[in-house]
Amino acid sequence: DNLVIALHSYEPSHDGDLGFEKGEQLRILEQSGEWWKAQSLTTGQEGFIPFNFVAKAN
C-alpha cells in the first residue's frame, strides 16, 4: 500500500495543495517530482503534498 505518515504539519499555500497535521496518515495516489498527489485518511480530501514532509508507514 502507498501509505505514508506526516513527519511535519503542512499548511497549504496554493490551490490544490492538501494540508495535514503531523502524524496524519495519507495514501499516495501519484508520485511526480517534489509534489505528490495524496489523499488524507483522516479527512478523505485529496491534493498535492511536499514529498519531504512524509515517510513510508510500516
Rank of each mutant, 00 (worst) to 15 (best):
L3V: 09
D15P: 12
S9H: 08
F48C: 10
I49A: 04
G44V: 02
F53N: 05
A55C: 11
T42Q: 13
Y10F: 08
E11T: 15
H8F: 12
E21T: 11
G44I: 04
F48H: 10
S32T: 15
Q31G: 12
Q45E: 14
E30V: 10
S32A: 13
F20Q: 02
D1L: 05
S9C: 08
E34M: 08
A38V: 12
P50K: 03
H14S: 13
F53A: 14
K56G: 11
F51P: 15
A57T: 14
W35K: 15
G23I: 02
I49Y: 00
G19V: 05
T43S: 12
N2D: 10
F53I: 10
F53Y: 15
A6N: 00
F20E: 04
E34Q: 11
Q39T: 08
I49P: 02
E11N: 10
V4G: 06
W35C: 10
S13G: 08
H8P: 02
L26C: 00
V54P: 03
G23S: 04
G19N: 06
P12H: 01
F53L: 13
E21A: 13
I28E: 00
D15F: 11
H14I: 11
P12Q: 00
V4S: 07
R27M: 07
G23W: 04
Q45R: 14
R27P: 01
L7D: 05
I49K: 02
I5G: 04
G47Y: 01
A38L: 07
H14M: 08
G33C: 05
S13F: 06
A55E: 15
H14G: 13
E11P: 06
S9M: 05
Y10R: 08
G47I: 00
F51M: 15
L29E: 06
D17A: 14
P50F: 01
E21S: 13
A57Q: 11
Q45F: 07
Q31F: 05
W36I: 04
W35G: 07
N2E: 05
D1C: 10
W35N: 11
E11M: 06
W36G: 08
A6S: 07
L7Y: 05
W36K: 05
A38Y: 03
Y10V: 05
E24D: 12
V4N: 03
I28A: 04
G33D: 05
E21M: 11
G23T: 01
W36H: 04
S40N: 11
E46S: 14
S40D: 04
Q39P: 01
Q31M: 10
G47F: 00
I28D: 01
K37A: 04
K22H: 04
Q25K: 15
L29K: 07
I49G: 01
K56L: 09
N2C: 07
E11D: 11
D1W: 07
D1G: 11
L7T: 09
H8C: 11
K22T: 10
A38F: 02
I49Q: 02
G33P: 05
K56T: 12
E21G: 07
F51C: 15
L41K: 07
Q39E: 10
G33N: 11
H8G: 08
A38R: 00
W36Y: 12
S40I: 03
P50H: 05
Q45I: 03
G33S: 10
S13Y: 10
Y10M: 06
K37G: 00
I49C: 03
Q25G: 07
S9Y: 04
A57R: 12
K22Y: 06
G44C: 06
Q39N: 01
A55D: 12
W35Y: 11
A55M: 11
G44S: 08
A6F: 01
S40K: 12
D17W: 12
P50M: 00
A6V: 04
K22D: 03
V4M: 10
T42C: 09
Y10P: 03
I28T: 03
E24M: 03
I49H: 02
D1N: 11
Q31C: 12
F48V: 12
A57V: 14
S32N: 15
G44Q: 09
E34D: 15
Y10G: 03
E34W: 07
G44K: 13
K56P: 15
N58S: 05
L29D: 01
H8M: 09
F51K: 15
E30Q: 10
H8R: 15
V54W: 02
S9F: 02
G44E: 09
L3I: 15
V54L: 03
Q31Y: 09
G16A: 07
G16S: 10
S9P: 10
I5N: 09
A57H: 13
S9V: 03
H14D: 09
P12W: 02
E11S: 10
G47V: 02
L29G: 03
S13E: 12
K56A: 14
G19T: 07
G19S: 12
G33H: 04
W35T: 15
R27C: 09
L3F: 07
Q39L: 07
V4K: 09
E11W: 06
L26S: 01
A38D: 00
L41D: 03
G23Y: 03
Q39G: 03
N52P: 04
H14C: 13
P12D: 06
G23M: 02
D15A: 13
P50W: 03
W35E: 07
Q39S: 08
W35M: 14
G47T: 01
S13C: 13
E24R: 01
P50D: 03
I28V: 11
E24G: 03
D15K: 15
L41A: 06
E46W: 05
E11G: 06
G47D: 01
W36L: 12
G23F: 04
Y10S: 03
A55R: 14
A57F: 06
I5K: 06
E30D: 12
Q39F: 05
N2A: 02
L41N: 04
Q31T: 08
T43C: 00
P50Y: 00
S9L: 01
L26V: 02
N52G: 13
L7M: 12
E21V: 14
L29C: 06
L41T: 11
S40G: 02
F53D: 04
K37Q: 06
R27E: 14
Q25N: 15
F51T: 09
H8N: 14
W35F: 11
L3M: 12
T43H: 04
F20C: 05
S40T: 05
L29V: 14
K56F: 12
L29P: 00
F48R: 14
N2T: 10
E34H: 09
V4E: 03
A6W: 00
S13P: 07
F48G: 04
G19A: 13
L3D: 05
S32G: 12
E30T: 08
Q25T: 15
G16M: 08
A6K: 00
D17V: 11
E24K: 02
A55L: 06
Y10A: 03
S32V: 13
A57S: 12
L41G: 03
K37H: 06
A57G: 12
L18A: 04
T43L: 01
A38N: 06
L29Q: 06
E24Q: 06
Q45T: 11
P12R: 03
G16F: 07
I28Y: 06
L41Y: 03
K56S: 14
G47P: 03
D17R: 14
D15W: 05
K56V: 11
T42V: 14
L29R: 04
W35V: 12
A38W: 04
K37Y: 10
D1T: 07
I49L: 07
D17F: 09
Q31D: 14
P50E: 00
S32L: 06
Q39R: 14
F51D: 10
E30K: 08
L7E: 09
L18I: 10
I5T: 15
G44M: 08
T42H: 12
A38S: 02
E34C: 08
G33R: 03
S40V: 04
H8K: 15
V4I: 03
Q25F: 13
V54Y: 02
K22F: 04
F51W: 11
L3S: 07
E34T: 12
T43E: 04
D17I: 06
K22S: 07
L3Q: 11
K37F: 09
F48I: 08
R27I: 10
W36R: 09
T43R: 04
S13R: 13
Q25S: 13
S32Q: 15
N52R: 14
G47C: 00
F53R: 10
G19F: 04
